[in-house]
Design a protein around this nucleic acid. Structure first.
Length: 979
DNA sequence: CAGTGAGCGAGCTTCCGCTTGACTT
C-alpha cells in the first residue's frame, strides 16, 4: 500500500486532517517556518563567520543569496520529518496558501530531500470535502511566490539589521528599528505630539427639556441663536483652543448660556418640521484576527496577547477555526451551521432569504484561511461548553459564536426622527432647536450582537430614543433649558486594539504578528501601557525623530504598501528579486540605497541633537528635554532633573518642568539621620541611585546604593547602614583597613593598597582576619580578575603553546599574541589541542593596543583625571582662572600632561594615593571653591579660626560648616592633584 | 543629575513572519 506524507503548518490542523483521511496517509506539521536567516552571531556557522556579510545573513556580493539555517530548536523536528519524508512514496506539501506558506513548502522540499514524488496542495477550509478536493488537484511549488517571500525576508533583515546599529550609536544600545515596529512607534509618537500641541477650547450650549401639550417631555438641543449656528467642537482649532479662522458661529460662554437659559424658560416653541426616515443596518462581518483582537479588547478588556492565547487554546481544542486570518469568508459548512442556528434560536424571521457573504478585503490580505468561527458543521452553543472551557476561553468563544451567528442574520430595521423647533427668547432672540429620535422596529442581528457592547439586550434599549408624536405646527414648551459646558478633547492615544486596526488598515504587519508588535515596542522601551492606552516614551521620541529626519522614506506610512506592490510584481514574474534588493540596498537604478545612506548618516547625525526632544510647550523657555544614559531628564543651564516615569510627554508643561527642576530628580526623604538630625534623602544621580544626609549642597554624606537595593523601596535603616560606610575593619601592620563602596564596587583599603571584594554585603561582614588574608593575595586575583592561573595548557611542536584562562568575559584562549573568547557551545572542559588551535587561528584577535604605548597610556590617565573633575574644579578653574590670573596655574593645563607621561605607563606607581597636601600646596587652587567655601577655608586654615566660630558669620550651623569644610578640602586636594 | 581606588583578551545587541511547547516566575 502506498504511503503518503502530508505536511501542514500547524499540529492542530494535522490532527484534524488525519481524521478525514484513511490509511496510507501520514499527516505531520512543520510547526511554522523550519529555516531562517541566522538570528545572531551565535547562529552563524563557523564557515561563514569571517565573511563581511555574515552579520546580515545575506551575501551582498552574490545577489543577496540568503544563508539559511535550521534554527536550533527545530533541528530535532526537521530530522524527524526528514526521516518520514524519505520513507514516503509521496510527499504532499500542504502548507498555507499564501506567500509564507509557499516558502515553507519550498524550504521543506529543500531540507527534507524526499525520495518519492512531491506535490503541493492548498485548501482554505478544513472540511472533508475540501481536503479531498485539494488532494485531487495538486500543483507545483510556485517559485515566483517563494522569491517574493525571500525578498520580503531580505528587505526586513536589511532594514532591521542595518538601521538598528545607527540607533545603538546615536541613541542607546539594544534599540531596534524595523519596517513594522518603527511605523507603529511613529504612530504613537505623532499622536502624542498632537496631544502635546493641543490647547483645549471651551464652549457652552443648552440642553432643553421640552414638553408637549399633552404633557410628554422630550430632550432637544439648541442649534442656532439669531440665525447663527452655535459653535461645536469641530469649530475649534486644536492648536490654539480658539475658533477656527472664518468660522461663522456663535460661541457661548457660561454666563451667556445661563442668561439665555433663563430667557428661554417656559417660552413656547413651534415644531417647524418633523421628519421620519426608515433605515436598515447590516450585521458585521465575521471575525478576522484584527477585529477579534479589537472586540476582545472592547468587550472583554483583554489585551491582544491574552485574546490570542485564549484563541489558541480554543483552536487546539477544536472549538474554533484558525485564529490568524485576514479573510472574512465563511465556508459553506459554516454558513449552513450558522443559518440553522439562527432559525432554531431566533426563528424564521431573523433568517435572510440568501446566505450573506462578506468580501471586503483588508489591504494586502492573503486569505489563506477562512474567518474565525466556531468549528464544525454544527456550532456548539456557549451554554453547552460552560463546564468545558476556562473562563477566558469561554468568554472568547461566546464572542466568536455570537459574531458568527449574527453575521448570517437579517438586517436591523428602524426609523429615525428629526424634529426642528423654533421660538423666541424673552429678550427677543430667534432660536432654533433640534430633537432626534430613533426607534427599532425589527432588531435583526442586533438581537445577537452589538459591536463594542457586552449585553445585546441592554445595548438594544440604548439604541432607542423615542420621541412623542410631533406634527408640524404643533406648539410645545421649553420647560427646562439647562446650560451645558463642553471642552474640546485632544485626540485619544492609541490602544492596543486601535493600533492594530490602524496598522492593518495600512497593510502593515500580519495577523500572526499583531500581538507581538505591541510586545516588541514595549520590550524595546518605546511604549508603556497606561490603562488601555499605549504611551510613547521619550526614547521613542528620540528614535522616531532620528528616523523621520534621516531615514524618512523608511518610516513613511505607505512604505509597506509600496513594498507589497513590488512583491506582487515579483510574485507575478514582472520583477526580479536581485535587482529589487540591489536597488533598495545598494542604490542601483535610482533606488533608495540603504547602505550608503546608513554610512552617511552614521557620520552626519549628531547624537546630542537627537537626544534633545522637541517639546512645543517648552520652546523658548530654555528648558530642554534630553534622553540620556540614565533615562530622560530636563535641563536648564546647569540645573537638571529626571523626568519621572509617570509624567507622560503630553503632561510636560512648562509649569510641570519648573516644578521638577525646582525639586530635582524625584528625591525622596526617607527620614531623619539620628546623628545629625538632618534629613536622609534618596536620589537618582549621574552614577546611579544614592542616598545623602542633608539637603544642602554639598550634603553631609553620600552613599551609593548596592545593585540589590531599590531606590523606590529603600528604608531609612538601610540607607543609614549604607551611609555608615566606609567601615573600619581593623588595624593591620600598623595601618587601618577600611571597607569602602567605590566606583568599581566594594573594596578594602589599607594605606595605598586595595583589594576588591566580590559581594557588596561583605563590606558589613568582612573580618580583620579575612581582610588580611585578602591583602596577602596578589592584587588582581580571584573573582573575574585577569591574570589568574591557566585552566588548561596545550603544547605544539610548531607554534607557541596555547593556554585557556578564565577572564572577565568568561573563558578564553591565548597564545600571548592573540586571544579568543570561547563561544556558546564550546565547552572548556572538553576542549583539546586541535580545537584550541582552530579557534585561535580562526578568530583569535590581537588585544586592542593602547596605541603608541607610554604616551597614550599616560595621556589617557591624565585625560581621565581631567574628565573626572571637569564638572567641578576644572571648568571653574579655566573660567575664573583665565579671567583673574592669566598665565597662572590654570593656564598650565597642558604641561603636566607631558610630565605625567614620564612615569613608566600604568604600573603601580601611577595614581599615587598621597597623604593630604599641605595648605601651601592647596592655596593656589582656592578659585575652585564657591565664595562661601572660600571664606570658610580662609578663616579656618589661613587665620586659624575655629569652625564653630566661623559658622554663624556664614549663616551656617556647625554641622553644615563642618561638612562644607570637608568638601572644600576634598575639592582643593583634587584640584591640586589633577594639575 | 554625587564622588571614592585598580586594571583588564570583548563581543553582542537588532528585523518580520510562520508555528508550538519548554522553560521559569
Amino acid at each position: 500500500m502506498p504511503n503518503t506524507l502530508i505536511i501542514v503548518e500547524s499540529p492542530a490542523k494535522a490532527k484534524t486532517i488525519a481524521k478525514y483521511l484513511g490509511k496510507g496517509y501520514t499527516v505531520e506539521s512543520s510547526i511554522g517556518h523550519i529555516r531562517d536567516l541566522p538570528r545572531s552571531a551565535a547562529e552563524i556557522p563557523e564557515k561563514y563567520k569571517r565573511e563581511a556579510w555574515a552579520r546580515l545573513g545575506l551575501n551582498i556580493e552574490d545577489d543577496f543569496k540568503p544563508l539559511y539555517i535550521v534554527s536550533p530548536d527545530k533541528k530535532a523536528h526537521v530530522a524527524h520529518l526528514r526521516k518520514l519524508a524519505q520513507q514516503a512514496d509521496e510527499v504532499i506539501l500542504a502548507t498555507d496558501d499564501d506567500r509564507e506558506g509557499e516558502s515553507i513548502a519550498w524550504h521543506l522540499f529543500q531540507e527534507l530531500k524526499p525520495k518519492g514524488s512531491v506535490k503541493r496542495m492548498v485548501f482554505h477550509e478544513i472540511t472533508k470535502d475540501a481536503i479531498q478536493a485539494a488532494i485531487a488537484h495538486p500543483r507545483q511549488i510556485d517559485s515566483n511566490l517563494v522569491e517574493a517571500q525571500e525578498t520580503r525576508r531580505a528587505l526586513d533583515r536589511l532594514y532591521g539589521y542595518e538601521v538598528s546599529p545607527v540607533l545603538w550609536r546615536k541613541v542607546a544600545p539594544k534599540l531596534s528599528a524595523g519596517r513594522v515596529q518603527s511605523v507603529a512607534t511613529r504612530l504613537l509618537v505623532e499622536r502624542e505630539r498632537e496631544r502635546m500641541r493641543f490647547v483645549p477650547g471651551e464652549w457652552w450650549d443648552l440642553d432643553v427639556t421640552c414638553v408637549t401639550g399633552a404633557g410628554e417631555p422630550f430632550p432637544a438641543r439648541l442649534l442656532e441663536v439669531g440665525g447663527v449656528r452655535l459653535a461645536q467642537g469641530r469649530d475649534f482649532d486644536p492648536l490654539t483652543g480658539q475658533l477656527r479662522a472664518g468660522a461663522e458661529v456663535l460661541r457661548l460662554g457660561e454666563e451667556a448660556a445661563r442668561a439665555l437659559a433663563e430667557a428661554l424658560r417656559e417660552q413656547p416653541l413651534t415644531v417647524l418640521s418633523a421628519e421620519e426616515k426608515p433605515f436598515t443596518q447590516k450585521p458585521y462581518a465575521p471575525f478576522i484576527t484584527s477585529t477579534l483582537q479589537q472586540e476582545g479588547s472592547r468587550k472583554l478588556g483583554f489585551g491582544a496577547q491574552r485574546t490570542m492565547r485564549a484563541a489558541q487554546k480554543l483552536y487546539e481544542g477544536g472549538f474554533i477555526t484558525y485564529m490568524r486570518t485576514d479573510s472574512t469568508t465563511l465556508s459553506t459548512e459554516a454558513i449552513s451551521a450558522a443559518r440553522a442556528q439562527v432559525k432554531s434560536l431566533y426563528g424564521e424571521a431573523y433568517l435572510p432569504a440568501q446566505p450573506r457573504s462578506y468580501t471586503k478585503k483588508a489591504k494586502n490580505a492573503q486569505e489563506a484561511h477562512e474567518a474565525v468561527r466556531p468549528a464544525g458543521n454544527a456550532f456548539r452553543t456557549p451554554e453547552t461548553l460552560k463546564g468545558e472551557l476556562g473562563s477566558d476561553e469561554w468568554k472568547l468563544y461566546d464572542l466568536i459564536w455570537k459574531r458568527t451567528v449574527a453575521s448570517q442574520m437579517a438586517d436591523a430595521r428602524g426609523r429615525r426622527m428629526q424634529v426642528r423647533l423654533g421660538g423666541q427668547s424673552t429678550d427677543n432672540r430667534e432660536v432654533l432647536l433640534s430633537a432626534s429620535g430613533r426607534s427599532i422596529d425589527f432588531p435583526g442581528f442586533l438581537r445577537a450582537y452589538v459591536e463594542g457592547r457586552d449585553d445585546p439586550q441592554a445595548a438594544l434599549e440604548d439604541r432607542e430614543t423615542l420621541l412623542p408624536p410631533l406634527r408640524e405646527g404643533e406648539q410645545v414648551t421649553a420647560a427646562d433649558p439647562e446650560p451645558s459646558g463642553h471642552e474640546t478633547q485632544p485626540p485619544a492615544r492609541y490602544t492596543e486594539a486601535s493600533l492594530v486596526q490602524t496598522l492593518e488598515g495600512a497593510g502593515i504587519g500580519r495577523p500572526s504578528t499583531y500581538a507581538s508588535i505591541i510586545g516588541t515596542i514595549q520590550d524595546r522601551g518605546y511604549a508603556a501601557k497606561k490603562g488601555q492606552a499605549l504611551v510613547p516614551t521619550w526614547t521613542a521620541f528620540a528614535t522616531s525623530a532620528l528616523l523621520e529626519h534621516h531615514f524618512g522614506r523608511l518610516v513613511d506610512y505607505d512604505f509597506t504598501a509600496r513594498m507589497e506592490e513590488d512583491l506582487d510584481d515579483i510574485a507575478g514574474g514582472r520583477q526580479q528579486r536581485g535587482p529589487y534588493l540591489r536597488s533598495f540596498f545598494l542604490g542601483e537604478e535610482g533606488g533608495m540605497g540603504l547602505r550608503p545612506l546608513v554610512e552617511t548618516q552614521m557620520e552626519n547625525i549628531d547624537p546630542r541633537s537627537i537626544a534633545t526632544i522637541q517639546v512645543p510647550k517648552l520652546e523658548g523657555s530654555g528648558v530642554e528635554v534630553r534622553v540620556g544614559k540614565y533615562g530622560p531628564y530636563l535641563t536648564r543651564g546647569e540645573a537638571k532633573a529626571t523626568i519621572p516615569e509617570e509624567v507622560t510627554p503630553d503632561e510636560l508643561t512648562l509649569e510641570k518642568a519648573e516644578e521638577l527642576l525646582s525639586r530635582p530628580s524625584g528625591d525622596r526623604v526617607l527620614g531623619e539621620d539620628p546623628g545629625s538630625g538632618l534629613p536622609v534623602i534618596a536620589k537618582a544621580g549621574r552614577f546611579g541611585p544614592y542616598v545623602q544626609i542633608g539637603e544642602e549642597n554639598p550634603p553631609l554624606r553620600t552613599a551609593s546604593l548596592f545593585p540589590s537595593d531599590d531606590l523606590g523601596t529603600l528604608s531609612l535603616d538601610r540607607a543609614l547602614k549604607l551611609l555608615s560606610l566606609p567601615r573600619l575593619v581593623g588595624v593591620s601592620e600598623g595601618e587601618e583597613i577600611w571597607a569602602h563602596n567605590g566606583k568599581f564596587g566594594p573594596y578594602l583599603k589599607r594605606g595605598n593598597d586595595s583589594r576588591s571584594l566580590t559581594i557588596p554585603e561583605q563590606l558589613f561582614t568582612v573580618s580583620l582576619l579575612e581582610a588580611e588574608a585578602l591583602f596577602m593575595q596578589p592584587r588582581f586575583r580571584g573573582g573575574r580578575g585577569a591574570a589568574s592561573a591557566p585552566l588548561a595548557s596545550f603544547e605544539y611542536p610548531d607554534r607557541a603553546p596555547i593556554t585557556l584562562k578564565s577572564g572577565r568575559f568568561g573563558p578564553y584562549l591565548t597564545d600571548g599574541e592573540r586571544n579568543a573568547t570561547l563561544r556558546k557551545g564550546e565547552d572548556q572542559g572538553s576542549l583539546n589541542e586541535v580545537d584550541a588551535r582552530n579557534i585561535l587561528e580562526e578568530r583569535g584577535k590581537e588585544p586592542k593596543k593602547k596605541e603608541a604605548k607610554g604616551r597614550r597610556g599616560a595621556a589617557k590617565v591624565a585625560g581621565a583625571a581631567v574628565k573626572g573633575t571637569r564638572s567641578t574644579a576644572a571648568s571653574k578653574t579655566t573660567a575664573t582662572g583665565a579671567r583673574k590670573a592669566p598665565g597662572k596655574p590654570a593656564r598650565k593645563a597642558s604641561a603636566p600632561k607631558t610630565k605625567a607621561a614620564a612615569p613608566k605607563a600604568a604600573g603601580k606607581t601611577a595614581a599615587p594615593k598621597a597623604s593630604p597636601l599641605a595648605w601651601a600646596q592647596l592655596r593656589p587652587y582656592l578659585e575652585v571653591l564657591s565664595p562661601q567655601e572660600r571664606e570658610l577655608v580662609m578663616a579656618t586654615r589661613e587665620r586659624g579660626e575655629k569652625v564653630e566660630a566661623v559658622a554663624p558669620n556664614l549663616g551656617l550651623d556647625v554641622k553644615q560648616a563642618k561638612g562644607m569644610a570637608l568638601q572644600a578640602s576634598k575639592k582643593l586636594n583634587q584640584a591640586a592633584r589633577s594639575r
